[in-house]
Measured scan of single mutants.
Amino acid sequence: MTEYKLVVVGAGGVGKSALTIQLIQNHFVDEYDPTIEDSYRKQVVIDGETCLLDILDTAGQEEYSAMRDQYMRTGEGFLCVFAINNTKSFEDIHHYREQIKRVKDSEDVPMVLVGNKCDLPSRTVDTKQAQDLARSYGIPFIETSAKTRQGVDDAFYTLVREIRKHKEKMSKDGKKKKKKSKTKCVIM
């Protein structure tokens, strides 16, 4: 069974824990209790493949930012979460993405942009803004509501699919490099 290491990042209060708990335990946590770091595991079937999701729910508070490099190193894919009623959390996505790329030393890291709290009427981040940002990053965008469960499975499952595509691409690139290195030079 394939294991996928997913990391949920975003500013404090955007609903990272609520999304994760909704996926794992099928219930909505409405009281806000700032996370330092929590880890969850769940076995699911995605596109006919049974897999184990190892999900790291991270601290959004700035005082825990020193811990970010460590979990970013171990993560295979990242859910970059903002709240649709919090423009600052949307603007912060850029910083999370840049930090992930720096730590992973790669421009090509599996990510999904997630606009959470889409059940709320007080939207300050337009869907088109988020779609445009995701398009500019070359990553999928999904709106979710941890409260109603809308888009929750889709967000995590899409990230797994992005990781699969990335692994497939990397193995193809690896095979191309191996083929090239088999060419021999004969000096007579």
Rank of each mutant, 00 (worst) to 15 (best):
T2P: 05
Y4R: 09
K5R: 08
K5F: 00
L6P: 02
V9W: 02
V9F: 06
G12D: 10
V14G: 06
V14S: 12
V14M: 08
L19H: 11
T20S: 12
N26P: 06
N26K: 09
F28S: 11
F28Y: 09
V29A: 11
E31K: 10
E31C: 07
Y32G: 12
P34V: 09
P34M: 09
D38I: 02
S39D: 10
Y40F: 10
Q43K: 13
E49Y: 02
L52T: 14
L52V: 13
L52I: 12
L53A: 08
L53H: 06
L56E: 13
L56G: 13
L56R: 14
A59N: 12
G60W: 04
G60I: 01
Q61T: 14
Y64M: 11
S65T: 07
S65H: 04
M67L: 10
R68D: 14
R68K: 12
Q70C: 05
Q70G: 06
Y71L: 08
Y71T: 14
M72L: 11
R73Y: 05
T74H: 12
T74R: 09
C80D: 00
V81R: 00
A83Q: 11
I84C: 15
I84A: 15
N85D: 11
T87W: 04
T87G: 13
K88A: 09
S89T: 02
F90N: 01
D92A: 14
D92W: 03
H94R: 07
H94I: 02
Y96L: 15
R97P: 03
R97K: 05
E98R: 01
Q99I: 06
I100F: 05
K101C: 06
R102Q: 04
V103G: 05
K104Y: 13
S106A: 08
S106H: 06
P110Y: 01
V112K: 00
V114M: 05
K117N: 11
C118Y: 06
D119A: 01
D119K: 02
L120P: 03
S122D: 13
D126K: 05
Q129K: 07
D132V: 06
L133P: 02
L133K: 06
R135I: 03
S136T: 14
I139R: 02
T144S: 07
S145I: 03
T148R: 05
T148A: 01
R149E: 14
Q150P: 03
Q150F: 13
G151H: 04
D154P: 04
F156I: 15
Y157L: 12
V160N: 01
R161D: 13
R161T: 14
E162G: 03
R164K: 15
R164H: 07
E168V: 06
K169M: 12
D173W: 02
D173Q: 15
K176C: 13
K178T: 11
K178R: 07
S181W: 01
S181R: 04
T183W: 02
T183K: 11
K184G: 13
